[in-house]
């Protein structure tokens, strides 16, 4: 049991983060807080990806021999092919999830930026960033339409 807890520690953290983030999204009325929750939620995914990139006993996937070396054909013969060759001997962690998550982070940042920009604009036009308030305002606006319609055209 405990060993499972240890071996799955990352996953548990992922789940906790995910739930925390989602909970904030569910419950927060403040739009900024909601975006924060969203970010936390997304972060949990980053962690999930990075976790699965980890290979037990693996080292960072950096080919040591080429560090800082020149580009001469004789030295760098293995850049691609060699890396593949070395992989058989040295156990590397999987770099791909890291790369992916880099992209995901960018995406997350972009989302957050757009979201924040939106909140700013909302604050300008609605004068509040409490979603409950805004829904109330919108509801009143919708209702105007409904009242008018009810007298005229509802079937």
């Amino acid at each position: 049991m405990f060993s499972e807890f240890i071996t799955h520690f990352n996953y548990i953290v992922v789940i906790i983060l995910m739930m925390t983030g989602l909970y904030v999204v569910f419950s927060a009325s403040n739009m900024i807080k909601k975006l924060v929750g969203l970010s936390v939620f997304q972060t949990s995914v980053f962690l999930l990806y990075i976790t699965m990139g980890k290979v037990t006993g693996g080292v960072p996937p950096i080919i040591e021999g080429l560090h800082g070396g020149d580009y001469g054909p004789e030295n760098g013969a293995g850049h691609g092919a060699e890396a593949a060759g070395q992989a058989a001997e040295i156990l590397y962690s999987n770099p791909l999830p890291h790369v992916l998550i880099l992209t995901a982070i960018v995406v997350g940042v972009a989302t957050l930026a757009v979201g924040l920009a939106l909140v700013v604009r909302i604050r300008e036009v609605y004068g509040t960033i409490e979603e409950v308030e805004i829904d109330r305002l919108n509801y009143a606006f919708n209702m105007d339409g409904v009242d008018e319609a009810a007298s005229g055209e509802t079937p």
């Binding site: 989602l22 999204v25 569910f26 419950s27 927060a28 009325s29 909601k34 979603e131 409950v132 829904d135 919108n138 509801y139 919708n142 209702m143 339409g145 409904v146 509802t154």
Partner: peptide
Amino acid sequence: FSPAGAMSQDAPSGIASVLTA
């Protein structure tokens, strides 16, 4: 179902995300 009705009020995103979950 009307815009004022239970089903189609502009649901706060929180409710929608609960639904998603």
